[in-house]
Design a protein around this nucleic acid. Structure first.
Lengths: 106, 106
DNA sequence: ACCCTTTATCGTATTTTTACGATAAAGGGT
DNA sequence: ACCCTTTATCGTAAAAATACGATAAAGGGT
């Protein structure tokens, strides 16, 4: 997977109000189960489960099956990768500016 | 617009490989026009224009109509907002950890 | 004035996303 | 063993995203 695809996958997974809310909730409440999330999100249980699946498949969260109660928790690494990807885009801007400055100076 | 909605809008706008590629290109090449982007992206001109529109509407890039040649450039502020939003989610995690540590200690 | 380039928009088809209810699987408690 | 809770998955309907060609608008050059 290219870097662009990776960043697109990560941002797309975050890119829904319900999923942002879920991520924030997971961050506050450590490893809550699906039901905990559902009561806080005002969406059907199946819909919440689907959003959780999207986040798991993107690698942003992790499922820990504890019997009948599955718990979820945030994975920090992909978020760092996301931030790094955004910063990388902005950095290329800075690099380009640098180049222009250098060539103007000479 | 809530903070969650804002972050969702920003990440959703980034969340497509073509748009990531466009953003990266805009960052390297300062204020290129639509045609410049089109030749680099291998998509129809109308499709590229549509992607540019998505990015403009999210506020991530800016259009500067220079007559028949419209030029685009990156807006840095919303990217910072995006990063801040992600960091905010992770920070709540840290804050929660802090709380747990504090309560365990007392 | 004329043509040519550039690019946004329109119309449209296809695919994907989103949401829900219903159902099934999987344990936990008694 | 039985029921009850929990939750993923299936089926499905509606909405949104994605891509393209065709077209129109808007200047630039001669």
């Amino acid at each position: 997977m290219s870097q662009d695809d990776d960043l697109a996958t990560l941002t797309r997974a975050v890119g829904h109000p319900a999923r942002v809310a879920i991520l924030r909730f997971l961050s506050k409440q450590k490893t809550p189960c699906c039901g905990d999330v559902t009561t806080c999100i005002d969406l059907a249980q199946s819909t919440v489960s689907q959003h959780l699946k999207v986040l798991v498949e993107a690698g942003l969260i992790e499922r820990k099956g504890q019997g009948t109660k599955n718990c979820y928790s945030i994975c920090r690494e992909p978020f760092q990768r996301l931030i790094a990807g955004i910063e990388d885009i902005l950095a290329e801007d800075a690099a380009a500016t640098q180049k222009i400055k250098a060539s103007t100076k000479s």
